[in-house]
Design a binder for these strands. Sequence first.
DNA 1: GCTCCAGATCGACGGCCATCAATCTACAGA
DNA 2: TCTGTAGATTGATGGCCGTCGATCTGGAGC
Lengths: 117, 117
Amino acid sequence: MAVDLELTPKQKRPAGERCCEPVVYPDVERAQALRMAEVAKALGDPIRLQLVDVLRKHAGKVCVCELVPLFDVAQPTLSHHLKKLREAGIVDSERQGLWAYYYVRPDALKELTAWLS
Amino acid sequence: MAVDLELTPKQKRPAGERCCEPVVYPDVERAQALRMAEVAKALGDPIRLQLVDVLRKHAGKVCVCELVPLFDVAQPTLSHHLKKLREAGIVDSERQGLWAYYYVRPDALKELTAWLS
DNA sequence: GCTCCAGATCGACGGCCATCAATCTACAGA
DNA sequence: TCTGTAGATTGATGGCCGTCGATCTGGAGC
């Protein structure tokens, strides 16, 4: 088999023609990026973002029956959004009799907030 | 037509049986929630979040040809992600000859960061 | 037991998203 | 003008998302 002496495109480009300084990309961020993207994705819907906003401002446990009339979506839809927020670890719920109470988990948004700041 | 004298479910519930304190929801947040959710949605993908991370850490304009080899996706896919970030107002680009340089727009993440903090 | 209600789940629908190969568009160098 | 290249665009595909009506679950009160 013959050795391919043809230069690769990268080798063809003279060193002086670099487009910019090389970018170092630490592998440490991969797992962290996955976690933060999951949180950001959960916040990437207006209704879910407003839900978190209400829960945070209230600083306590809020009944679902108080949340439903605030939004122009059907009850199953709101329940779906609350589930998404729960799966992302942003909120948690607590059942008391017929009613369900939701609250923001402390430190849930900490990592993303720290990265943004 | 007969007048419906049947009480509505809400009226049936005695005042003493409130599930929780009523939640006030300021309408001021609606438009703001839309903008912030758009930004959060753009950050809701691991690759896009890492792209922003690299661009922010580099604190300058980075050539696309330096970004592509950092990720395990094809070049059109990365171009697609950069477009999404551009449409969300998070990054902007600048063409110089064959190369395109991307950078984070100042204040692009300001509103979301302030809300999270 | 029965009925009523709050909330979660299911099933379906339409639409958008992430990905790729293939192609297109400019620009650079010869 | 021709060739090679960087990056954007297109078209197709599979999957996930937001929404709803209908249904299910289980606790409250009779």
